[in-house]
Every structure is written in structure tokens, then in C-alpha cells.
Design a protein around this nucleic acid. Structure first.
Lengths: 342, 342
DNA sequence: CTGAAAGCGCTTACAG
DNA sequence: CTGAAAGCGCTTACAG
């Protein structure tokens, strides 16, 4: 029922080519002809058929964003940033939730749906380090988001994971904490966000001459409020003594916070807490959470920019780029003051 | 570079039609022919071009989800539910953020991007009641989500807003609260979520013989943690006395909670608090927040189902449907016990 | 059971 | 400045 270019051309008494000339703002159209065309356009309420345009032009102005899960506030805020950045560039976004599942991620990268987009922003979660070969042979440009996969042939845009965790840990050490939980490692992972953050945590300890204690390193996977809360229950049950907590994501910090306070621990008096991500909620928790702002808007902006460049010129010969956003330690009440009991 | 049906047909030594027969599972293909085709398919790594398929078939298996803002946890969780429901039906989702802006919403409903989808799930925010005529004349089926726009020619799926607010308010009244804030009205709005929730609040008061007090009805728009926190600052500054708070969304409740606790008010001892939405965060706030679970998964599932029916048969003649999800009052610590000081 | 051909609605050389 | 025509990669009647 929708009007086509054909219909408009008939109404205006011109050829299809003239109509597209008007629509696409080609300058050399006689004013009189232009008027006839715009009238017909308005009259028929013409809306271009993007599918047809895409088939012909080979681009859809659609990009895919593959993330583990929108329920995780970090990814919801990231998706928001990405969509704003994409819109500013005239792109729409298809969001695909992988659930952190490796097979699903691969299917989403290579499946027909991806084929429909011009490019992919991929926040890897199920696919692990050293698997970058899976990214080869894809027909669409890919930009990696927020993870660090080694040896990739693709651009990636991420935060300074190790440096952020280092700053968070050092912040607690400077306030006299010595028994600091490394909260949210992924079992055995040395790359990826979790692995890099663990590295930064260990480096800060080493620099301060504090021997790392394996009982203070807590594996948590995946990162949700409830997994953070449950992990803290296990820590408390184990009787491990600690006076600081560096969480590798805000949501697990918030889950742990809840468990600690229910158990009668005072934050920050008994335990200084630092999170990671600076999600909106950290400003309103009890107490407000010190955290690392990863520069989400910057990450989204640069990633979309990179992807657009790759889309426009897939064979530019520009080697894979690795962009690191600037991060910031945001100090709030959960970490301020020194220990209550030396 | 991607292989086409043509390429596969050439490789297999058959016609295009035979290849599609195999791909689309048409039963009557000779096993031998089928084998040749599947071999060629694998060899060339054939992935169908969805754009071409769409142009021909007239459907894209893409639906748009128009919501105000993914930063709002309610909408992030709703988007998650919708995407899961859509995926179960073989549909992908383009998320469009309207920012609650009326013009943007209209553009998103009628623009070429919407034209590219098979249908639209629309969580109205900028467009207000009595404007349902804007939904006429759209070329794609629309299902309204979570708002109640009168006289619409479209299906809508929503929660029982008034009943939920009624239950929340009654819950506080039963626990001895009499000065209950109606927190989060939209100025002058009587329809939409805010308006309906206000109605339910007022009805509960009326039933309990409590005269409504205009100074207890607090306008907040839009609903964010920070607008909730700021509104509570104004309430405290005004000196209004209250012992209960029914918030029309969780995020404004959580913002207000933070302000109250900073001001030395005890929750629930001094103020009993009930929120609305049952976002994950309410389980982990200090104290955990009593709230109304709106049945988000049910809403998403039914909405996608309705939309799919409309897509499959746009002229079924089935009159517009109005589905109300079942809701539940989830009691947590923020509202338990009776007032500390009668 | 399989093939040849039309056509979805655009854009893009190519003419004039 | 404007037109006629090809073709993007599929699906869908229509033949045989």
C-alpha cells in the first residue's frame, strides 16, 4: 500500500530518476520540476523502502551490538551510549543478547542476521582469549568492545582494565587497608576484563609490598548482584579476615555490600569498598559506592567511529587499532576514611 | 564476496529453485540432488541475504521497540524481556530510544526505519493521552506497551496500574500509615502510568476514609534516581509531615530512599516505602524495597504474540485487544512493621 | 521432482 | 537537466 518511487514519478509526470534526484538532494533540478516532485511526495506520503535501497546499495545503515545481557546495568548503559553514538552517525542498532554463551556469540557473529548489518560491535563474553581466529572470515567488519582479545585482526576499544583495578586497589591501600579482597575473578582467566583487573589488583599489592593471599581472591562468574551477594556469604562463612574489597564490577559490589551490611559489617569503617563501572546506581547506594568510571561514552563514540570507517572503506589497509579510554576513580563514601580498628 | 544462491546452484549443477527447495526444507527433493546442494552450500559457506529475501517477501522478521531510555532500569529489563520473547518467535529487535520526546516518537513510528520493520512495540511516553489518532495511518502494526492510551485502534498490553498503586497504598495503610506521599505524579496527567497510579493511590485513601492532601502529591518527571532524590529534598525542605511513601516507580523510590536516610529518617521505622516495577536492584537496596511486580515477562510475551498475529494477518478483523498482566505486591523490609511513633 | 522467468523497489551508470 | 534500463539476491507462481 505504501507509495513507491514509481507512484511518485507518475503523479509528478517525471521519471523515477528525477524523483530520486530530488530526494537525494542533487542540486541540478529545475525549481519547477522540483516543486512538482515535492508536491507528489507530500501528497502520497512517500517513505523510502529501506530494504530495497539496501539491496541495491549494499548497505543497511544497521549495526549489530552483541552484549551478554541488558539486565546487567553496565551493558544497559553501554547500549544506551552506543545507540546515541550510532544515531549521531545515522545508524540504527540491532541488539543481540548472547547470554555469555560461546555458541550463541559465534552464531550471532556469522549468522544471516549479522549479514544484514553493515558491521558488528562485539562485546565478547563467551568466546575467550586466544580464540580470535573465530573473528576471521566474517563478511562484516567487527569492532571489539570492552574486552581485550589478543592477536585479533580487528579494532578494539576498551578501558584500561588493569590500570583501573590498580588505581582502585592503591586507593584502599593508601587508606590503610591491607587485607583486600580481589572480588570477581574468573577462574583461571588471565585475559578479558576479569583477568586484567585481577592483574592490576595484584600489581598494586606487589608495589605496596603486600603478599597476595589466594584466600582473598574470589572467583565470581557471571557478574550479577545475586552472585556477588552469594560470593560474600561464602567469604563470611569461611572466616577469612578482610578490611577492603575491590570488586571487578559494580553489581557484584552492590550485592556484596548488601550481604556485609546484613551481617553487621560497617562500610567503610570495617571494610572499604571500591567497585568498577560507575553505573548510575552507585550514586544512590547505601553508602554511595566509590568506583572506576570507565569512560563509557568515549568507548561507544570511538567504537562506532572505528566501525564506520571500516564500513566505508573495508580495504583501507589501516592496521587494527587498539583504543584505550581514559578512566577515573570516583571517590564516594564506601571507601573514605581509614580503618576504624588498626 | 558472499556466495549467492546463483553461485550455489552453479556449483551443484542445479537450478536456483532446487537450491531454495533444499534450504527451505521442501520435502520433494531427490536425496542425491539434496546431497549435491548441501555440499555446495557448505563448501561456499552460504548465508542467505536477508535484505533480498525481505524485499521479495515483504517481511523482515525485524520489529522495533520504542522506549524512552535504556538507562532506566525498568526499560532495560523490559527490553530484555521483549528481546527474549521476540527471539523465541524468530524475530530480531531494533531498539529506538525516544528520550520521552513526542516528536522523536512520532518520527520513529512513521519514519523509514519503522518501514523497515514488520511491526512496532511502542512504549508511549512523549505522546500523551487522547493523541491516539497519531497511531492511525501507520503502515505497520503497532502494539502499545505498558501505557494506556484511550480510544486507540491498536492492541495494548499493560499492567494494572491503578490496581497496583491501590495495593501498594493499602499495604501501607494497613500498617498504620496515614500521611502517605503519592510520589511521582505527572503534572495534570490522568492517563498514562503516572495518572493511573495516582488514581489507585487516591482510591485506597478514599476507601480508608483518609482525605487526600495535595501537599502529599509530588510531581516528578521524568523518573530517574536523581529526580526522585531531588523531589525528596524539596519535600523535606517544605516541612511536610509524612509517614509513608508510595512511589510510582522504583528508581524514584531509590533516589528518595537515599535522601531520606541521609537526612536521618529511618526506613521503615519513620517512613514505610513501597516502589513500583520490581527491578532487580530493589532486592539489594538498603533496606530492600517493597514493590509491585508488574509481570514484565508476561507483558513482553503477550505483546510480541499480539504483534506477530497482526503481522501475519493484518486484516483479521480481530478488534483491538487490551491485555492486563497480573501483578504482585512483593513485600520487603522497607514497608514492614508498623509505625515506630504513633 | 526441477527449471526459466518475473518482479519486489530501489540506485547507478549510461545516454541524450 | 532528465530519461530508459540494468541489476542487487532473493521468492513465487507457472510450466513441464
Amino acid at each position: 500500500v505504501a507509495a513507491t518511487l514509481q507512484d511518485v514519478a507518475l503523479h509528478a509526470g517525471v521519471s523515477i530518476k528525477t524523483v530520486t534526484n530530488v530526494i537525494n538532494g542533487w542540486p541540478h533540478v529545475r525549481p519547477q520540476t522540483r516543486a512538482k516532485v515535492t508536491d507528489a511526495l507530500d501528497l502520497l506520503g512517500y517513505v523510502p523502502n529501506l530494504t530495497a535501497r539496501s539491496l541495491r546499495s549494499g548497505k543497511t545503515d544497521l549495526i549489530a551490538l552483541i552484549i551478554p545481557d541488558l539486565r546487567n546495568a553496565y551493558f544497559a548503559e553501554l547500549a544506551d551510549s552506543v545507540m546515541r553514538a550510532a544515531e549521531a552517525q545515522g545508524l540504527s542498532v540491532i541488539v543481540e543478547q548472547s547470554g555469555g554463551d560461546r555458541e550463541r556469540e559465534l552464531a550471532q557473529i556469522r549468522g544471516p542476521r549479522a549479514q544484514m548489518t553493515d558491521g558488528i560491535l562485539y562485546s565478547a563474553s563467551g568466546v575467550r582469549e586466544k580464540e580470535s581466529h573465530f573473528l576471521r572470515g566474517t563478511s562484516r567488519p567487527i569492532v571489539l568492545l570492552g574486552e581485550h582479545i589478543l592477536d585479533g585482526p580487528t579494532d578494539h576499544v576498551t578501558m584500561q582494565n588493569a590500570e583501573g583495578a590498580y588505581a582502585a586497589t592503591r586507593h584502599l591501600i593508601e587508606r590503610g587497608r591491607t587485607r583486600i579482597l580481589g572480588f570477581g575473578a574468573y577462574l583461571g582467566q588471565t585475559d578479558g576484563s576479569a583477568g586484567l583487573r585481577l592483574t592490576g589488583y595484584l600489581r598494586a599489592l606487589a608495589e605496596a609490598g603486600i603478599a597476595p593471599d589466594p584466600t582473598l581472591i574470589i572467583d565470581i562468574e557471571p557478574w550479577y548482584r545475586h552472585t556477588g551477594a552469594e560470593a560474600m556469604e561464602r567469604v563470611l562463612a569461611s572466616g577469612v579476615v578482610f578490611d577492603g574489597l575491590v570488586a571487578f564490577s559494580d553489581v557484584i559490589a552492590l550485592g556484596a555490600l548488601r550481604t556485609m551490611i546484613d551481617a553487621g559489617l560497617r562500610v567503610p569503617e570495617d571494610v572499604g569498598v571500591v567497585g568498577f563501572d560507575d553505573i548510575d546506581e552507585t550514586r544512590y547506594s547505601q553508602p554511595p559506592l566509590t568506583t572506576i568510571d570507565p569512560g563509557r561514552d568515549e568507548i561507544a563514540r570511538v567504537a562506532v567511529q572505528y566501525l564506520r570507517e571500516r564500513i566505508q572503506d573495508p580495504n583501507s589497509g589501516i592496521p587494527p587499532r587498539h583504543y584505550l579510554s581514559s578512566f577515573e576513580l570516583v571517590t564516594r563514601r564506601s571507601s573514605t576514611g581509614t580503618r576504624a580498628h588498626a
